[in-house]
Simulated assay, not measured.
Amino acid sequence: MKELVRTRQLTKSYGPAEVVSGVNMNLRRGEIYGFLGPNGAGKSTVMKMLLGLVKPTGGEIEIFGEKLLPGSTEHLKRIGHLIETPVFYEKLTAEQNLELHTEYMGYYKEGAIRDALEMVQLAATYDKPVKQFSLGMKQRLGIARAIVTRPELLLLDEPINGLDPEGIQAMRQLFVRIRDEWGTAILISSHLLSEVEQVADTIGVIDGGRLLREVSMETVHASTTEYVEIVTSNVSLAAFVLVDTLEIENIKQMGDNTIRIYDTKLSPEVLAKGLIASDVPIQSINRRHHSLEEYFFDMIKGGNEHVATH
């Protein structure tokens, strides 16, 4: 995959405070990149620098194979974005707001506005003034505005804010569809790690302005520890049977009713059979691996910079 975005030692300071520090990011065509970090980590600032809304203090940005120079605007025609809370002309309809945007962008493809509204499930409200929209509807309209020009690069800053679970699932499916059908590269910042885990091809973990790691989700899944999780109403008996009878060496109690087994030499089926034979009540038993959330917090706690791994 060809890289659409490359940053090298990208840095931004406000006075003595360095909010982005030496970031080396690589975003490829047809890739969803999950940009993860706590509030104030520098995610939005990096996105604003990619759009030219904030001027870097140091380093360089390359977009679509060309270095981004002060005053560069031509690349913006190929980018869709949703940064922070979307703002609209409240008295105008969703359709009218998108008409103004496409005119400003010089994009005049017939049917594009209706297509975008349908994709975010707002087609039925196209003639309704935006002032009557809920927070979630405005967020959907912001996404529609970002995708209406079929961009090659899509920058989405916390795009599922204000959406209900059904809306989150719909947008997740939409992002994957845009990647697969249009070949669009998508940079998504989010604090909802479980949602990023379900769509991202690559993640970048940023904290304190430093990119700690850039790694493919395949690598994350391959490197995370696998374990068997047992939920039982009698943890003490289960632990005794696992260690004394089944000779499991590596277990850990998680709360009042859960045990994790990191010694995976026995299958969940064999474990269940052994526990049931000793009258251990089992509510559930499943093979799992550490989530992206656990990987993320381990990374933040470690705080060490890592080489990018694709």
Rank of each mutant, 00 (worst) to 15 (best):
F64I: 09
F64H: 05
G65F: 14
G65V: 14
G65W: 14
E66N: 13
E66G: 03
E66A: 13
K67S: 12
K67D: 07
K67Y: 14
G71E: 02
T73I: 12
T73A: 10
T73N: 08
E74F: 06
L76T: 06
L76E: 08
K77H: 13
I79E: 03
G80Q: 00
G80K: 01
G80E: 00
H81L: 06
L82K: 10
L82P: 02
L82W: 09
I83A: 02
I83G: 01
V87A: 15
F88C: 14
E90A: 15
K91T: 09
T93M: 06
T93F: 04
T93S: 15
A94I: 02
N97R: 11
L98C: 00
E99M: 12
E99T: 08
L100N: 02
L100Q: 03
L100R: 01
H101A: 14
T102E: 01
E103Q: 13
E103F: 08
M105C: 07
G106L: 10
Y108N: 11
Y108Q: 07
Y108H: 14
E110L: 07
G111Y: 08
G111D: 06
G111V: 08
G111H: 08
G111M: 09
A112L: 04
I113R: 02
R114C: 00
D115F: 02
A116F: 01
L117M: 06
L117Y: 06
E118I: 00
E118W: 01
M119Y: 02
M119S: 07
Q121K: 13
L122M: 10
A123Y: 12
A123F: 13
A124C: 05
A124G: 11
T125P: 00
T125V: 14
D127S: 15
D127A: 14
P129A: 04
K131T: 13
K131C: 13
K131G: 11
K131E: 15
F133V: 09
S134Q: 10
L135N: 12
G136F: 07
G136L: 04
M137W: 08
K138C: 11
Q139S: 13
L141G: 05
G142A: 07
I143R: 05
R145K: 14
R145I: 05
R145L: 05
A146K: 07
A146G: 08
I147Y: 07
I147K: 05
V148S: 06
T149N: 14
T149Y: 03
T149H: 09
R150F: 04
P151S: 12
P151Q: 13
P151I: 10
P151T: 12
E152K: 05
E152R: 05
L155W: 00
L155G: 01
L156R: 11
L156P: 04
D157F: 00
E158A: 06
I160Q: 13
N161A: 01
N161S: 06
G162E: 03
G162C: 04
G162K: 10
D164K: 15
G167Y: 09
I168F: 00
A170E: 15
R172L: 09
R172T: 11
R172F: 06
L174M: 11
F175A: 03
F175G: 01
